[in-house]
Design a protein around this nucleic acid. Structure first.
Lengths: 353, 353
DNA sequence: AGTGTTGTGTAGAACGCTCTACATTCTGTG
DNA sequence: CACAGAATGTAGAGCGTTCTACACAACACT
């Protein structure tokens, strides 16, 4: 039955013959209500199909709503996070709402986060990497906050990160072990990734690792989109004849690189591509992209759980690091062999830190 | 600057030396405020970094928030809709929030829609296909509503549909023209698609068309996921030797079918696959899936515009139909030729209704 | 019997905003 | 110069909840 907008707590109270406060207690599962009262009120609620207005609740107590701010909805990693978050919220009185940012290329993700706060969410999960540590710290003094993917030692909010340095090591080492001695890194262009942002950490780790391996780093800057990476990779690959490995900052970028590779007709050993996120499409046999896996559903679920803890009263910051794994697939191969891709090889080798 | 939760309209009024009502007028752009007052108030607002609470607004006037209910976030068609909607909302005082359904396999999408209403949205866009016409009509008496993808002649809400019958015709005719005489249709399993739901319309159109072409219809039921389609297609293909065309209800299903095809090592002419939605991944050269395009961004933008019209006062229902187009790619080919796929062929032929 | 305690219910303020009604000040007109 | 109207501002109720008192019983101990 659709909500007959107009049944308020008042109506329920009248029907049940009790006070508004009593009804409020029942729906909040609060202390001080007899089984008798509960039954009476519950029946009235059911009868009227009553639903408490979240906006009214938000004015005084809690709205029982969690917000997720989500940049770039095209990135296939995010659906996983949301799935995990939704599942973790099951059998909870909490509801989830999402606010999309960046679809319009707008830069101020703070706007979106604030909008979520305006809606009276009880807590929020932020993913965006375009907002500063100080800003987040200040925000966190106001509302329970969990930030995904920022390597911060924050004081007022929790963080969940995949160990991006380790993930980068897995990727680069894999390419090195295959025999590649020229290994490029496709990362996000543009001014000022925040320090501690995943792509910044990956970039730093890449540079450090290349130095350690005695190789010359080559950084390819790209917009955060498949087409951006395609264009950047195409331009770069045309200047390159020898076999190369390409470590892309995330799968969407990797897909763009693969497009360029396909267009130039290079074999897998000629150009080995490794992505990051292991998004759903990476494992498709026609793509078969080697990628660093960070379990999105797990991240989403964990984020929500931390948030609920915080709402329940915890103030000590929690900082969780999840170990990434490398899923080796056909997009990466030994340069010497340069064997044509063998579609029947679906073997997926797993490397863990 | 993050929101210093605590600045209220009261604070602004005090600082500007005016009444709360005056401030309210300014932020709503309402009638009866002098340029002088506007300047004074605006400066106070800026100075304090004041932001009106959407939840408080929702209690009396409008929250300036639109809600989108979104089933199955994995379906790559939805990001496009959201992008379109976000863009249409630019330079508007309206904000967008999303509520995800179905990630948990829960069946009652009405729940999610109601939750959005509870948050005091001024209007909402519904996409889900698991809710009845009557329910929606009743809901629409309460809140401005636009429904995407339902072939209804609704009285109280607007609809936007792609012409699914025409799209189906494009797909099936294309397979027929290639030379296929055995053409199957992968559709959503499970009880009770609502009549008027896109997949129901596509199924009906498929059956009608097959009858008209004098062919025997073969319907393959699948869960709404890539893995579901993979399993269903794999089982079916193993019973089939001759060349077949497969028309999948949407791209996610088509990807599953392609997985099965790849696993069985059949060539494109052996099994020609056509999808629906032309999601971003379909055009990737390594996938190159022939698909029926319904412009998601356009649909999203249009939906928002209709909603704003409704909020502005329109009550006469609007029902828009968008013409689909067929993007022909390498996943479909003539059965006789059975030529191996040629990666250099990126030609994209376009068929319009 | 008198005094806590505990359990159960209610009244009513408060949350931050919008909106209706009204008061006041400016215009322009006869 | 009186007066209608327009323009501009304010007071204060109201939106649907929750939450802090507090009232009243019922019960347990001295």
């Amino acid at each position: 039955m659709p909500p007959t907008r107009s049944t308020t707590i008042e109506d329920v109270a009248r029907l049940a013959g009790v006070s508004r406060a009593a009804v409020s207690k029942v729906i909040r599962d609060a202390y001080g209500v007899s089984p008798d009262m509960r039954a009476k009120v519950q029946s009235a609620i059911d009868q009227l199909g009553y639903r408490p207005r979240a906006s009214a609740r938000a004015m005084r107590g809690s709205s029982y709503t969690l917000g997720i701010e989500m940049p770039n909805i095209h990135n296939l990693f995010f659906p996983k996070i949301i799935t995990g978050a939704t599942q973790a919220l099951e059998n909870t009185r909490y509801q989830l709402i999402l606010a999309p940012t960046g679809a319009t290329g707008e830069e101020d993700h703070g706007e979106t986060i604030e909008a979520l706060v305006d809606h009276g969410v009880d807590g929020l999960v932020a993913i965006s990497s375009r907002v500063s540590l100080e800003w987040l710290e200040r925000l966190a003094e106001t509302v329970p906050l969990v930030v995904i993917g920022r390597h911060y030692d924050a004081r007022h909010f929790d963080t969940i990160v995949s160990d991006d340095a380790a993930g980068t090591a897995l990727a680069v080492q894999h390419l090195y072990d295959l025999g590649h001695r020229r290994i490029a890194h496709v990362t996000l262009a543009g001014p000022g990734l925040e320090p501690g942002a995943p792509h910044q950490v990956r970039l730093d780790a890449y540079l450090a690792l290349m130095a350690r391996l005695g190789l010359t780093p080559e950084v390819i800057a790209s917009e955060s989109s498949e087409t951006g990476a395609y264009a950047a990779a195409l331009a770069w690959l045309q200047t390159v004849d020898e076999p190369v490995g390409v470590f892309a900052g995330h799968d969407e970028l990797a897909l763009g690189v693969l497009t360029a590779v396909a267009e130039l007709g290079r074999a897998a050993g000629q150009v080995s591509v490794v992505g990051y996120d292991d998004s759903s499409i990476a494992s498709h046999p026609m793509i078969s992209l080697t990628s660093v896996n960070q379990s999105g559903t797990q991240v989403g679920a964990r984020a929500v759980r931390l948030l609920l803890e915080r709402i329940a009263g915890r103030t000590a910051p929690a900082h969780e690091v999840m170990a990434p794994e490398l899923r080796v697939r056909r997009s990466s191969a030994a340069p010497s062999g340069a064997a044509p891709r063998d579609p029947s090889d679906d073997g997926e080798r797993l490397i863990t830190t």
